[in-house]
């Protein structure tokens, strides 16, 4: 061992700073930034294609209208699920045990949203709106489908968190990581709803 590489134990050792954001949460945040850009790309594409639709007919002639009202109600379920998750966080801070029920509620509401969206898809498909039928249909399934994949992924993560919490193993970083992603799924939805449905 050369003298240079060893730090004498007597030297004042600066303290290792505590990270501003825990690594797990930070990683998910960076990932969310990328995801936001992904959805921005989709929305930009949608805006451009919509803008040049023939005669400004959007949706194009002969294509079914989207169920604006029903989906608005359904979106409410998703938003409430997000709000419940906020309460979960504060409950967890006080007592991890108490966080389990709001977490479950949040999962159920999220599942309701995803399930109802699925029902809506089946109905629209039978009405003749498919990815191939027009750019309108293509973008609808692409954007809403991308969101659905993220929602399902986030739900699986939430269920995993619930599983850990029922075993008493859930840490606050884990809950923060998982809920950060669910917040993203919840908060990006109103934007998509505004762009695609309205």
């Amino acid at each position: 061992m050369s003298a240079e590489s060893a730090t004498p134990l007597t030297a004042p050792r600066p303290a290792k700073p505590k990270p501003a954001i825990p690594s797990g949460v930070l990683g998910v945040l960076i990932f969310i930034f990328t995801e936001i850009m992904f959805f921005s790309g989709l929305i930009s594409a949608h805006t451009i294609v919509k803008s040049q639709a023939a005669g400004q007919m959007w949706p194009p002639y002969g294509q079914p209208r989207l169920p604006v009202g029903e989906t608005a109600l359904n979106s409410l379920a998703l938003l409430v699920s997000g709000i419940v998750l906020v309460f979960t966080w504060f409950a967890f801070k006080r007592d991890p045990e108490r966080a389990r029920i709001p977490l479950l509620l949040s999962i159920v509401l999220g599942s309701v949203f995803v399930g109802f969206q699925g029902v809506e898809w089946v109905a629209l498909l039978s009405e003749g709106l498919t990815m191939q039928s027009s750019a309108y249909g293509g973008f609808f399934y692409l954007i809403v489908g991308s969101h659905a994949i993220h929602a399902v992924g986030a739900l699986i993560a939430l269920i995993w968190a619930y599983d850990r919490s029922s075993k008493g193993l859930l840490t606050s970083t884990q809950l923060g990581t998982v809920s950060a992603f669910w917040y993203f799924v919840v908060l990006v939805w109103p934007v998509l709803y505004w762009q695609v449905y309205l």
Binding site: I30, F33, T34, E35, I36, M37, F38, F39, S40, G41, L42, S44, A45, G138, L142, S146
Partner: peptide, 14 residues
């Protein structure tokens, strides 16, 4: 990279 790749991934899916 992280900030610029999203739109391209969206385009690639399309």
């Amino acid at each position: 990279f992280m900030l610029s790749v999203g739109p391209l991934l969206a385009g690639a899916v399309m």
